[in-house]
Design a protein around this nucleic acid. Structure first.
Length: 430
RNA sequence: GUGGUCGUAGCUCAGUUGGUUAGAGCGCCAGGUUGUGGCCCUGGAGGUCGGGGGUUCAAGUCCCCUCGAUCACCCCA
């Protein structure tokens, strides 16, 4: 039988990094470092972690993200069991909003700052920086329509990137207006593009009917040229949204965060209104967007709330951020060391080593030993490979005398000590 | 879903116009040191050359099919 392999678009995260075709998969300690950075920065913002199920009702996602979006029409891992439709979450904003409404979290008072870290699933064709199971962390600020919520969301994301040591990123910013201004702009855009339809790609032509705003971020040069004379979203934006946007920008200025205004930035999820933003890295190839987000005041009603709940948030792609970390060669956590490796010679010593390892672990030390009954040389090599700080050697003579040879692997010094003294010696040295 | 590129040891790769038992470096295992790691030396294990079919006296090498990987389109984190 042929060995099984991980499903295309998924990958294992191993203790050591490895090459997965074109990409380097970071070692697990780098993933932990990223997660710890997220948790520590989020804590500075008073954000609390929320964990929601992988499986959600399909209808929640379809209503939340938009029934005509690409994610919903062709990228969902969805299935039916009995009378229930399940989907493996393609993003976490709609689930967090679902949890917020389900548990009446507004009753906790104030603005809810909720962050998450976890896997998402989309049935796209895998590519560099794009996977079928991928991982996101994100923040949702629910309950405030204040522009400070928008700015704080963006600034907290900047802090995470900076906390990791990243500096080569750019922030693109736009305002999509409110639920009045967007339809007006949409009509104007359709009116403008319809006479030019024969010059558009087939995809864009189809979008003219289904989702015309998406045509704005086409990458086809000829279409970009056509769009140069198209109506501007900014001309249709209502007064309140315009003020909101101006306020967000001045708050970002105050925070020292540079951005470029991009009137063509339209995000692929329907629930955004007003603020939309995206962080990009120039080092990643085609999948350059490392994080994105915006305000989604319309989502709550879409998923069943009687009254609108203002909210804003971001989602960040962990694989892409780790790719950016590799490209920028940011510092990675050091490889782990064991404090002491017990080299045991002979069966009696091996049994003693097992018990002694337990005692040393009980005092908080990281302890390893050989489990294959190998030669001393092999055990020493193994100790070296695990970067042991000390080696405790025990054979028949030591067993009789009730001592061990304690060797400092960095300095090379070796001394005879009683087992009860091992923990103290090591603690003093590390 | 569409297109380009690529599949030889655990990893990175050599393999000449088809020519005998398919190689190197790293890693792994063991020995050199009957109880001392890293450096060095020696040896070993590990490959149905992605799979199937075809051409040929002969295929890792040429042809066809297929599977997989990858990059890009698209989409988005």
């Amino acid at each position: 039988m042929n060995a099984f392999k991980s499903i295309p678009g998924t990958f294992d995260i191993l203790p050591d990094g490895y090459s997965n075709g074109g990409d380097e998969v970071a070692p697990v300690r780098m993933w932990l470092h990223l997660e710890e950075t997220v948790r520590s920065i989020m804590a500075r913002y008073g954000a609390e972690e929320i964990r929601t199920p992988i499986l959600e009702p399909t209808e929640l996602i379809a209503r939340g993200i938009g029934a005509l979006t690409d994610i919903v029409t062709k990228e969902m891992f969805a299935f039916e069991r009995g009378s229930t439709n399940y989907v493996m979450r393609p993003e976490v904003t709609a689930p967090v909003m679902r949890a917020y409404l389900q548990h009446n979290l507004e009753q906790r008072g104030g603005t809810q700052r909720l962050f998450y870290i976890g896997p998402c699933f989309r049935a796209e064709r895998p590519q560099k920086g794009r996977y079928r199971q991928f991982h996101q962390f994100g923040l949702e600020l629910i309950g405030s329509e204040d522009p400070r919520a928008d700015a704080e969301t963006i600034v907290s994301l900047r802090d995470v990137l900076e906390g990791l040591g990243l500096s080569r990123y750019t922030l693109r910013l736009n305002s999509l207006g409110d639920e009045q201004s967007r339809p007006a702009f949409k009509r104007a855009l359709v009116d403008f593009l319809t006479p030019l339809a024969d010059q558009l790609s087939e995809i864009s032509r189809n979008r003219l009917a289904s989702n015309p705003l998406r045509i704005l971020d086409t990458k086809i040069d000829t279409e970009r040229t056509l769009l140069a004379d198209a109506p501007r979203l900014s001309d249709f934006i209502d007064e309140a949204s315009r003020d909101h946007h101006a306020m967000v920008k001045s708050l970002l200025d105050a925070a020292g965060l540079a951005y470029v205004e991009d009137p063509f930035l339209v995000r692929g999820l329907d629930y955004y209104s007003r603020t939309a933003f995206e962080f990009e890295s120039p080092l990643l190839g085609a999948q350059s967007s490392i994080a994105g987000g915006g305000r989604y005041d319309l989502l709550s009603k879409e998923v069943g709330s009687k009254q609108a709940v203002p909210a804003v948030g971001f989602a960040a792609g962990m694989e892409r951020i780790l790719l950016a970390c590799a490209a920028e060669q940011v510092a990675m956590p050091a490889e782990p060391r064991v404090d002491v490796f017990i080299v045991a010679l002979g069966d009696a010593s091996a049994a003693w080593a097992f018990a002694e390892a337990g005692r040393l672990r009980g005092s908080g030390l990281k302890v390893a030993y050989d489990m294959k009954g190998r030669s001393m040389k092999a055990q020493m090599r193994e100790a070296n490979r695990q970067r042991a700080r000390f080696v405790a050697i025990v054979g028949d003579d030591e067993l009789v005398q009730g001592v061990v040879q304690l060797k400092d692997m960095d300095g090379g010094n070796q001394e005879t000590v009683s087992p009860s003294a091992i923990a103290g010696r090591i603690s003093a040295a590390i």
